[in-house]
Design a protein around this nucleic acid. Structure first.
Length: 569
RNA sequence: UGCCGGAUGGUGUAAUGGUAGCACAGCAGUUUCUGGAUCUGCUUGUCAUGGUUCGAAUCCAUGUCCGGUAGCCA
């Protein structure tokens, strides 16, 4: 990561960096900063996770500490190894490395079990026979204290024996739980004797059938942090009410000091998309998208496939900052970070997405010429390339209008336009098919108007891109738009499901695009700007040398069509 | 209704008792062989009411609004 990206200069630290700096100054943790990114392997990572990854790994990097990648795999019913693999790949792709600090909560199952025994022995945990419904009914309400479970005062010996039987699979799923004995009258519901262990006779993706009981998040997470010597345990706002329980568990067990401390920040919300793993999974399962890596998905794998760069995601995360209140960030901010990065790194090329054929009548039949084009005006190192020019070319359908509006600077009957890197061209004739559609255009060029030529400096308002017909390569180009048609699809006032707002026009395939020949050797990692159109990359899954498939990562800013749209309104 | 948080332009953020700043978006220009990029300028803000203070976005009080929280999910 470049330093400019990681911290905006001259602006204050966010509140978490402030705390870390204070802890360092006060030597609270012996000068160490150890954070962790703790995904549950039950889905793919999305841009919201990227915010957390950048925070946790960034904090470690900035303070010469370390950040652990820890899989929070305490609920085997919905976790699996495919997700573990995908999560690792995504974190690496984002540009972060955990070296040998890869952990699984499931690695601690035995120690967690021993800690549970310890609590029982202290009389601070008990085995409860209540059903889930009874559990809920006895919990009380925010205003009414709960009622103690009738099993709360079992003897330590009985608890010990029962808990071991739970482990040994002697009871059915849900028949019993291990609960902390805290305070059924607490104003914080999470302190009303919360469950620590539940029975789940399910095969775990790592421990197999070794366990029939699994620790809850509240028991496993804080202890995992303590076991790993985490100094700052950073999570999202909704866990703030769990913090007293986090502290209670740690303070009641013999653990190395100082204990880790939990801090909460506001998760990333982006308009026109959703950030819930459950809902993203629903889109995948209901085949509303092609999969987790659909280019329209806010997942890291989807964004990668669309051509988004990890650098742009990091700069975006740094731009949105870290605060304690929930915010809804505009996608436009992300778009800006994306374009900003792509503009610097993308190789320029010419591609015609919706072709019209043009015959240049004042050129001989087999005319062919090589022209020099700049690969990236933002980066001289990128050099130049050769683009073939000939008697027949393709231009963009949208670059020609028979009856253009005012200020249309492109081609019109009798009008002139500059062909990028080539000649000034005049439209002489529109040749139509029997049905009235345009078959092709007949044009002439000014032969002295090439760069350096006698008439090169003639003022022509518009410059358009083109591709030589004989050397053109065919490709499919896929255009993507936002997945949802409203800013907050999961917050509908009338109670409609988020799927009701899926944008039906979020995907469009153009199968007959014409590309300049240099694009034949494009690789999925290389980002391109198709001049005047947008940023594109080869689809990592569906493209092949025989049939190239490009994805549009994002369109170029387009002040012309923006103005047109406004005038229509 | 309890408890826990939070509130700075349209959006995201900074200012840690001393000139409310930055970025995005928007608007108007400049420039251009990409209607991209660049560059310039502009509009818009401290939730409310009191209090403390020479001075308050910042401290105090009260209120308002918003979010979280009542899985054997994380």
């Amino acid at each position: 990561m470049t330093e400019e990206n990681s911290q905006p200069a001259e602006t204050g630290k966010d509140f978490i960096r402030e705390i870390v700096a204070q802890d360092l100054a006060a030597d609270t943790h012996g000068g160490k900063v150890i954070t962790r990114f703790p995904p549950e392997p039950n889905g793919y990572l999305h841009i919201g996770h990227a915010k957390s990854i950048c925070l946790n790994f960034g904090l470690a990097e900035e303070n010469k500490g370390s950040c652990h990648l820890r899989f929070d795999d305490t609920n085997p019913t919905r976790e699996n190894d495919e997700y573990v693999k995908a999560i690792e790949a995504d974190v690496r792709w984002l540009g972060f490395e955990w070296s040998d600090h890869k952990f699984f909560a499931s690695n601690y199952f035995q120690r967690l079990f021993d800690y549970a025994i310890n609590l029982i022995e202290q009389g601070k945990a008990f085995v409860c026979d209540q059903t889930a419904d009874e559990f809920a009914a006895f919990r009380g309400t925010p205003t009414k204290a709960g009622t103690e479970s009738p099993f709360r005062n079992r003897s330590i010996e009985e608890n010990l024996s029962l808990f071991k039987k739970m482990r040994d699979g002697e009871f059915d799923d849900g028949a019993k739980t291990l609960r902390a004995k805290i305070d059924m009258a607490s104003t914080n519901i999470h302190l009303r004797d919360p469950a620590l262990y539940r029975i789940r006779k399910v095969t775990h993706h790592r421990t197999g059938d070794q366990w029939s009981i699994y620790p809850t998040y509240d028991f496993a997470h804080c202890l995992s942090d303590a076991i790993e010597g985490i100094t700052h345990s950073i999570c999202t706002l909704e866990f703030a009410v769990h913090r007293p329980l986090y502290d209670w568990v740690l303070e009641n067990l013999p653990l190395p000091q100082p204990l880790p401390k939990q801090y909460e920040f506001g998760r990333l919300n982006l308009d026109y998309t959703i950030m819930s793993k459950r809902k993203l999974l629903q889109l995948v399962n209901e085949k509303a998208v092609w999969g987790w890596d659909d280019p329209r998905m806010p997942t890291l794998s989807g964004m990668r496939r669309r051509g988004v760069t990890p650098e742009s995601i990091r700069s975006f995360c740094s731009t949105v900052g870290v605060t304690k209140h929930d915010a809804l960030t505009e996608m436009a901010l992300f778009d800006h970070c994306l374009r900003d990065d792509l503009n610097k790194r993308a190789l320029r090329a010419m591609a015609v997405i919706r072709p019209i054929r043009v015959v240049i009548t004042n050129l001989p039949e087999n005319y062919s010429e090589d022209l020099e084009a700049i690969n990236n005006p933002e980066d001289e190192q990128a050099g130049t390339r050769t683009v073939p020019f000939s008697r027949e070319i393709y231009i963009e359908e949208t670059d020609f209008m028979e009856e253009p509006p005012k200020k249309f600077f492109r081609l019109r009957p009798g009008g002139e336009v500059r062909l990028r890197y080539a000649y000034i061209m005049k439209c002489e004739q529109v040749v139509k098919n029997a049905d009235g559609t345009i078959d092709h255009l007949e044009c002439t060029i000014d032969p002295d108007s090439k760069r350096g030529g006698a008439t090169a400096s003639r003022k022509v308002k518009g410059t358009i891109h083109w591709v030589s017909k004989t050397q053109a390569i065919n490709a499919e180009i896929r255009l993507f738009d936002r997945l949802f048609s409203v800013p907050e699809p999961d917050k509908d006032k009338s109670g409609k499901d988020f799927t009701a707002f899926i944008n039906p026009d979020s995907f469009q395939s153009l199968p007959n695009c014409k590309l300049e020949p240099s694009l034949s050797k494009a690789s999925p990692e290389q980002r391109y700007q198709f001049e005047r159109t947008g940023y594109f990359c080869v689809d990592e899954k569906d493209s092949s040398p025989e049939t190239l498939v490009f994805n549009r990562t994002i369109a170029l800013r387009d002040s012309w069509s923006a103005k047109q749209a406004k005038q229509k309104k």
